[in-house]
């Protein structure tokens, strides 16, 4: 038998962390877990239902639709914002007051709350009174985000690009600035073309910031809620009903707490899983390269 004396005081030092994690993460999450396996009939009446809510949610056609739309939306966001962000960062001035001015201008959209962005574009793109909406229509291009699914998608995408490409730009700009001047000088002496400089110096050196940019933009766009909600409330029809919106519909709209809780957990796990796959893929190829 081990006769060594135990000093349990160490637990006191760990305790605050446990408390903080419990209050900030575990307890709220467990509430959701709690709801996801029970049918709550009244304040003190509940029945354990096992995985029923999970099965119900997973077999819901509306969820499949929302999930597919969500994947396409996040894909579009990444395909537009990452190349655009890189391109803008490459053309930004490097020094002097011009560079400070550009940084401030670029950062401005990031300071605007989601809700306000939605409202701005909702008004700006209105076909009857909005500047952009009226202008596009007067060019002879029919545009109405409340009736056309394509127009609604386009508006939400433009909104997101306008709001969040600046984040990608700033990250890329920081990545570009960290490249020592000698690399450009050596490339010049080696007779490299502008494309070769981009392909073999700038892009590889931006790899880390791009990983962060893709991860952030993916997670964020996967959780988009406010903008389509403000614009059309997820319409026309279900055209811009993404996962968050769908969740809000069952939780708040229909007050189906059980399925909503089950779906919350699934949603959370999906984001976690996709981010994890993506992250390990990037860091893995990073390590391969080092070999």
């Amino acid at each position: 038998m081990d006769k060594r004396p135990y000093d349990n005081k160490a637990w006191l030092l760990v305790l605050p962390v446990f408390l903080i994690v419990a209050i900030s993460a575990i307890i709220p999450l467990m509430t959701v877990v709690n709801y996801s396996v029970q049918d709550v009939l009244g304040p003190f009446q509940r029945v354990f239902v096992g995985t029923e809510w999970f099965e119900q949610v997973l077999n819901d056609d509306r969820l499949h639709g929302a999930f597919l739309r969500q994947l396409i939306f996040s894909g579009c966001v990444l395909l537009i914002q990452i190349p655009l962000g890189i391109a803008v960062a490459l053309t930004m001035p490097v020094k002097g007051w011009q560079s400070s001015l550009c940084l401030v201008l670029v950062a401005l959209p990031l300071l605007i709350p989601w809700n306000v962005v939605g409202t701005i574009w909702q008004l700006y793109a209105r076909p009857d009174i909005g500047l952009a909406g009226v202008a596009v229509n007067s060019l002879g291009i029919p545009y109405n985000y409340t009736s056309s699914a394509f127009d609604a998608w386009l508006t939400v995408l433009i909104m997101d690009v306008w709001h969040w490409t600046p984040l990608v730009i700033l990250l890329c700009y920081a990545g570009l600035r960290s490249i020592p001047e000698a690399f450009y000088q050596a490339a010049k002496i080696d007779g490299a073309s502008a494309w070769a400089v981009f392909r073999y110096i700038q892009l590889p050196k931006m790899r880390r910031v791009l990983t962060i940019a893709i991860l952030l933009r993916f997670m964020d766009s996967f959780m988009i809620y406010t903008e389509p909600f403000v614009l059309t409330g997820g319409g026309p029809g279900n055209a811009t009903t993404f996962l968050s919106q769908f969740l809000a519909q069952i939780a708040v709209g229909q007050f189906d707490l059980g399925p909503a809780a089950a779906f919350s957990l699934i949603y959370f796990l999906v984001i976690l899983l996709l981010s994890w796959i993506f992250y390990t893929y990037i860091t893995h190829t990073d390590r391969e390269d080092a070999r």
């Binding site: 020592p180 000698a182 000088q185 050596a186 002496i189 073999y200 110096i201 590889p204």
Partner: peptide, 21 residues
């Protein structure tokens, strides 16, 4: 004349290599 049109090569203080190649 720009560097690429002079027949010179330069080695810098910190090694410059093309990472991905």
């Amino acid at each position: 004349l720009p560097p690429q049109q002079r027949n010179i090569a330069q080695v810098f203080q910190f090694p410059v290599i093309y990472d991905t190649m």
